[in-house]
């Protein structure tokens, strides 16, 4: 009897979760889909976004992401490779670095926003700009990217490192020819996930890349990201809800496809690893 009730409880809890998800999704779809059109994606916003489209906002979003990736890719991948392949894992410094990265990965995005506002906008005098926003996002993505890349490399079987060393291969060759190609899907999946998180980010961008909804002329110009656009439409623009849902749908579609891609990649990688044994 109790067993029966418990089964019922578990099914009940799960259906509640499904219900909440369904509500959210249906809401976004019902209100968002009517907004969606080629025109919406390719025209400028009119009257603070109540009408018109989101073209400059999409451009700004990608510009901010581009800046962030340009910075975070070399530093993040390089740091991860060093941590996994060259560092002495037992040393105190390395474990402190790891812990700091874990902490940083959990730091609220608004705190990154504070830092970016004070440092990039203020101290470096970049002002509210795509550059400031991108750099702030880079700081936010860095720990996530390092940790996922490192995990991908660490999952490469150690026997190949030993085999490489026994053949007198340099570590550079081994990394470039064997380890990185093998870990590439996992590294890409980690990268995609951090891109997803960065695209969803709002709090870190409000005070760094700014609010302006026109087309940015350069990287030093202010630009509004999609997530910030949704926030602004729903909070500050009366009658902006429809456009907000349209933008939300675009944002979700982008992030979901990135996440699906990441999942497919890491799943195929897992299969590759299993079939190797």
């Amino acid at each position: 009897m109790i067993n029966r009730l418990f089964t019922l409880l578990i099914w009940g809890l799960a259906s509640c979760v499904l219900f909440a998800f369904g509500w959210l999704m249906v809401d976004v779809l019902v209100q968002g889909v009517p907004m969606l059109s080629l025109d919406f994606l390719t025209s400028d916003p009119i009257r603070s976004g109540r009408a018109g489209g989101i073209y400059p906002i999409i451009v700004s979003t990608f510009l901010i992401l581009g800046v962030a990736l340009t910075i975070v890719l070399p530093i993040g991948l390089g740091s991860a490779i060093w941590l996994c392949e060259f560092s002495n894992k037992d040393s105190k410094i390395v474990s402190t670095i790891r812990l700091s990265l874990d902490v940083l990965a959990g730091v609220p995005s608004i705190v990154f926003g504070l830092f970016g506002y004070a440092f990039f906008c203020g101290f470096l005098e970049l002002g509210f700009s795509i550059l400031s926003g991108g750099l702030t996002l880079a700081c936010m993505m860095l720990p996530i990217l390092i940790r996922t890349t490192e995990a991908g490399l660490a999952a490469v079987p150690n026997e190949w490192r030993r085999a490489g060393a026994a053949l007198g291969l340099s570590r550079t060759t081994l990394l470039w020819r064997v380890l990185i190609p093998y870990a590439a899907p996992a590294i890409t999946a980690g990268l995609l996930l951090s891109i997803g998180r960065a695209t969803a980010e709002t709090a870190a961008l409000i005070f760094t890349s700014g609010y302006v909804d026109r087309m940015p002329e350069s990287l030093a110009d202010s630009g509004r990201s999609l997530a910030v656009h949704i926030y602004d439409l729903s909070m500050n623009v009366v009658g902006g809800d429809k456009a907000a849902y349209g933008s939300a749908l675009v944002l979700i579609m982008f992030i979901v496809s990135i996440n699906l891609l990441a999942n497919a990649l890491s799943e195929s990688w897992m299969q590759k690893r299993v079939s190797r044994q």
Partner: peptide
């Protein structure tokens, strides 16, 4: 030569 065959994934 190691206990487990370890050709590179190439």
């Amino acid at each position: 030569i190691f206990q487990n065959p370890n050709p590179f994934p190439l």
